[in-house]
């Protein structure tokens, strides 16, 4: 643990701008800056990853670290900043962790069948609004990994469930619905993520407030996939 002091931070400074200021100061002094990840800085890319004062993405609900402002912290605060802590996310340096395990889970099943020929007309596949809304709720997952960092077991169930649900609910993703859940869950276990014990910490820390009910959804799909002989319905799709 290293202790840094930084003062005259305006309440309108974002948390990561405060880190930028710290790093510029460190560079000027000839010290190594603190490595951390960030990109969009508006809560959509899922790159920022810090645990501040023990909470992934800090004290505010439904907020990524980059959307956190220093007005959230009282004057003279000491803030403890840690990287995501999980066996499947090795620390690369300082606050930067390697989240490529998530990419490999996506590669195992996060795709849909697309016809290589002429494209279908839009609106030929009606989707019920409740189904579309539910799929979109799952699709708000930005893949930041806060769910893993918050989980005492380091489980990636909420992340995997969000991806499995968002794709499996929509007609474009239905052909692979059951093979997808098998493949993604298998990859999740291979990567060394833990198992779900219903602590619910993932939902509480998710900056997009994704519900753990998606985990039950994934479990239902998984059980169905293990009981029924998997059929690849791609061979029977109507020619378009």
């Amino acid at each position: 643990m290293v202790r840094y002091e930084i003062d005259h931070i305006s309440p309108d400074t974002s948390f990561l701008e405060m880190m930028d200021l710290l790093n510029e100061r460190l560079t000027q002094q000839g010290d190594d800056p603190v490595a951390f990840d960030s990109d969009c800085r508006e809560g959509v890319c899922g790159t920022c990853s810090m645990v501040s004062n023990g909470r992934p993405h800090g004290p505010s609900e439904g907020t990524t670290t980059c959307q956190l402002y220093m007005r959230q912290f009282p004057d003279d605060s000491t803030i403890t900043i840690e990287p995501w802590r999980a066996g499947a996310f090795p620390v690369v340096r300082d606050l930067v962790v390697d989240r490529s395990a998530f990419d490999r889970i996506m590669q195992a099943g996060g795709y849909v069948t697309v016809h290589a020929g002429p494209k279908p007309d839009p609106n030929t596949m009606p989707i019920e609004p409740e189904v579309a809304e539910l799929a979109l709720d799952a699709a708000t997952c930005i893949g930041c990994g806060a769910c893993v960092a918050a989980c005492p077991n380091g489980a990636a169930m909420l992340y995997t469930a969000a991806k499995v649900s968002h794709l499996g609910l929509l007609p474009q993703g239905r052909p692979e619905r059951y093979t997808r859940v098998m493949n993604m869950v298998r990859q999740m276990e291979t990567e060394g993520f833990g198992s779900c014990r219903n602590y619910g910490e993932c939902e509480a820390s998710c900056p997009k407030q994704i519900s753990i009910s998606f985990i039950s959804r994934m479990n239902r799909d998984y059980i169905r996939a293990t009981l029924v002989e998997p059929v690849d319905p791609r061979g029977t799709m109507d020619p378009q």
Binding site: S10, T13, L21, R41
Partner: peptide, 11 residues
Amino acid sequence: AAGEHQAKLTL
């Protein structure tokens, strides 16, 4: 912008 340290202007 709120100040010169600002990293971005949110759209």
